[in-house]
Amino acid sequence: MASPCELFVRLPKQSDACELIERAASEAQRIEQHFSRYRQDNPLYRINHSGGQATALDDEYARLFEYALQLYHLSDGQFDISSGSLRHLWVFDAAQRQAPAAAAIDAALELVGLARVHWQKPWLRLPAGMQLDFGGIAKEYAVDRAAQIIEQHGSADYLVNFGGDCRCRASVTKPWRIAIESVCEPPNNDNGVTLVEGAIATSGTTKRYFKQGGKRYGHILDPRSGRPVEEAPLSVSVVAQTCVEAGSLSTLAMLQGANARAFLEQQGVLHWVLRASDHS
């Protein structure tokens, strides 16, 4: 995972805490390797290079895929783990600071859309050339799995933090104080959230964007238009019971563009929406 990962476990004995941290960390590493799109030795590589042939998914892949499918339907196609080819067009870094040509976008869109995928558990068949990317879910999933591993081994207080996506549990007398990096810079103890039990996830474009013709292009793409979501917030942070929930809600909120805040208020979840105008 391309971000700093932290695990804290509060136990009287350091050796017990270390043991638990190692179990949780190895589960997170297993998930990272299992769902990474940078490896050639995992199921994702086989799925993405199946050339239109059906591939059998293991249970965990099936569950993650079905979760992605539900989000796809819930968002009417805005949340789409098959939008990888678009991301190759829009490279959000200093070297390439211009929007791709309309024709290139249209061509890429030919290979996007979970509606075109044939799924009959456990068999998955992608149109040739389409690629899946679980990056939008797997990190939050890894946070939750690491947390579950710790919870299954007793009642220790813990905090799992994978690049700002966190889940924790504490006694009421010793809650965790989590600073939200994108909201408070530098992160400090006074700006953040006090959590006894729950998760927080942040989706954001604060670091990955470029400006062209006065327009700011963030890295949240709408797979239906093939273009960045207009008026997307710089970042959205959401608190929920699990990291998967928090991450999904924050991503869906980003996709709402100008309506991000209204969407989150309707959901009744604790949230922070940061916009360029708020950002000095």
Partner: peptide, 8 residues
């Protein structure tokens, strides 16, 4: 999402 994630 809460229901879907609990299944996941």
């Amino acid at each position: 999402i809460a229901l879907a994630s609990s299944a996941l």
